[in-house]
Design a protein around this nucleic acid. Structure first.
Lengths: 194, 194
DNA sequence: TTAGTAAACAAACGTTTGTTAGTTTATCGG
DNA sequence: CCGATAAACTAACAAACGTTTGTTTACTAA
């Protein structure tokens, strides 16, 4: 079995693109850069992908799809709201660690999507935020959470989880589990000692 | 007094550049885009600035300078650590609201700085983070804060404050003061009700 | 062996990029 | 009114961009 022929080169291009876009930004990464990372000429990539824009779309929508499907799973469980929010925070951290490059691109470079993909992506994100916000709102109504402004709580959590991409390295002092536990403590019980 | 001649066009270019870089990213914004925003031709801008790179440097270092000098002021006060951290969070939110475009650029596009500016900027940021982290560490030692991992606390706070740029609009439901109060509550006492 | 095809290539395409050069216009001090 | 100067303009530059074209290579199926 020789892997030269079959081995999905399209996926390899997408993976390398995610890494490169994260590093240099969508505009800063050229198709020649990417090709050299893949190990072929720029022109040859067009046998596997339609355009640079398509690469970005595929990365962004794969990520948004993961978040939305996972949110649906969490919504469907019978856990408390505290547990559901913890699960969501955990989801974000885990995806960031396991698929950091793609998640970074979906977080930062989505704005370079062309219409109609741009609008579609924004809608997907808004849908996700709405679902997340609803859980916070219900948690407040159920008396599990403080009566904080829902949007503030939502975006504080979503943002607080993003820095993991900039900070986490596999061989860091903190393991993924410890990291997760610390962030959840910060967000749910706060910095101040009572 | 006619403002046509004197009125600092250099500053106008920098202000418009910050807005445009925030909107399109440094790579995505062309000098012709920027010139059209300023109301002159691209070539004419070179009577006021040296290069596109210089524009980015001026924006980034003005922002980093503001943060560092303000941190020094806060460090010098005699307040409790809780108050100092609150002051820092307040500082971030206020700068984001008052100078959002420039802060955004310094947050996102600093990586397009060319050496030696890039290294210099990274060092400035590291210096700021070190000072911030020291306050958290001392606050824990003084028993004011929970014994959470210092890096986690630091980056959670720094990130949690960034979304204000994406979210805050002058005519929003929440005033700047309410926004600030809500974020501080979230970060210091957490989402969960005790 | 041969025909078909997936995937690589080199070369060139038309744009757009940041920037420079040279020139013209407008304002102000004398 | 005249000369100086700041700041605008037009035109052009080389380089880099994403992409297309036409061709060659190498593997597979008949």
């Amino acid at each position: 079995m020789i892997p030269t022929r079959k081995a999905n080169k399209r996926q390899l291009i997408l993976d390398e693109a995610a890494k490169l876009f994260k590093q240099k930004g969508f505009g800063g990464a050229s198709m020649r850069d990417l090709a050299s990372e893949v190990g072929i000429e720029a022109a040859s990539m067009y046998n596997h992908i339609k355009s640079k824009d398509e690469i970005l779309e595929l990365i962004c929508f794969r990520v948004s799809g993961m978040y939305i499907s996972q949110l649906a799973e969490i919504e469907a469980t019978a856990a408390s709201y505290v547990e559901k929010i913890k699960a969501l925070i955990s989801l974000h951290i885990r995806l960031m660690i396991e698929d950091g490059a793609a998640v970074s691109v979906a977080n930062h470079d989505w704005k370079y999507l062309r219409e109609p993909a741009l609008t579609e992506f924004k809608n997907a994100r808004k849908q996700y935020e709405k679902g997340f916000a609803a859980l916070i709102e219900q948690g407040i109504a159920a008396g599990e959470f403080q009566p904080v402004n829902v949007s503030v709580a939502l975006f504080t959590i979503l943002s607080a989880v993003r820095w993991v991409e900039l900070w986490y390295r596999p061989g860091r002092e903190l393991s993924a589990e410890e990291l997760e536990a610390n962030i959840i403590t910060m967000l749910l019980t706060g910095l101040e000692k009572k």
